[in-house]
């Protein structure tokens, strides 16, 4: 069965969506990702959608859902590299993904996650590591 690969980089999971998402694929991704967050004790999720050209309300909701699930599992989600056309479409659909962090490219997304990890560590008195 077709699957979207999930890569691990330190405490961050990297998901690159390169194919058109259909319902089954999205459900599988949600299952796999939640599983992996727990298994790998990840604290960050990067979803790269820079090669996604077509988006619909289902796709928007799925991204919001994944972010919500990850937050419950104490991982932060950053959506990376959304194309202008996709952004305009989502706004026109009324989905502003208000709970999700966004970044223009991988560099800034990584920097954002690292900054928030540093905050967390500071808050927890450096107990993580």
């Amino acid at each position: 069965m077709e699957r979207i690969p999930i890569l691990k980089m330190g405490r961050v999971l990297l998901v690159t969506i390169q194919v058109d998402m259909h319902d089954r694929l999205a459900m599988t991704l949600q299952d796999d990702l939640t599983e992996r967050i727990v298994q790998d004790r990840a604290h960050g999720v990067l979803i790269d959608i820079s090669s996604l050209e077509i988006v619909d309300s289902f796709m928007g909701r799925m991204i919001a859902n994944i972010a919500g699930m990850a937050r419950v599992l104490d991982a932060e989600t950053v959506v990376v590299g959304m194309r202008p056309a996709v952004a305009i479409t989502l706004v026109e659909l009324g989905m502003t993904l208000s709970g999700v962090k966004t970044a223009l490219n991988m560099d800034t997304a990584m920097a954002m996650l690292m900054a928030s990890f540093a905050d967390k560590e500071h808050f927890n008195g450096g107990s993580q590591g």
Partner: peptide, 12 residues
């Protein structure tokens, strides 16, 4: 507001 939301979705 739409423009602002779209820019935010792209990370700006």
């Amino acid at each position: 507001l739409k423009t602002v939301a779209a820019a935010r979705l792209m990370g700006a």
